[in-house]
């Protein structure tokens, strides 16, 4: 939707794709190690990096108008609140 056209080279796309695969591999291997309470935290952290890559590069948000970033931040904030509130049950149950 932006007025300027941004062309990203194939190299970048392939690099991002490989990073996503690598991060997935890390998530799977970490699931096998017993890290206790930290397992979820690390998995979420890796997932956050992966989605940032997809959103910025594949979905072109990095190069688009600020309003889209606002929209995304809003959705991300809502998701964060939903997580926090769910944990009021999960942690204290």
């Amino acid at each position: 939707m932006g007025n300027k056209k941004h062309i990203i080279g194939y190299n970048t796309y392939i690099l991002v794709w490989l990073s996503l695969l690598a991060l997935t591999a890390i998530t799977v291997s970490i699931a096998g190690i017993h890290l206790g309470d930290y397992t979820l935290l690390i998995a979420m952290f890796i997932a956050a990096i992966k989605s940032a890559l997809v959103i910025n590069i594949f979905m072109h948000i990095k190069f688009d108008e600020p309003i889209f970033k606002v929209f995304l931040a809003l959705s991300g904030f809502t998701l964060l609140i939903i997580f926090v509130l769910t944990f009021f049950d999960f942690i204290y149950r």
Partner: peptide, 11 residues
């Protein structure tokens, strides 16, 4: 439903 007491009063 059986969720935690903390969650109950928060909600």
């Amino acid at each position: 439903s059986g969720m935690s007491d903390t969650a109950r009063w928060v909600f």
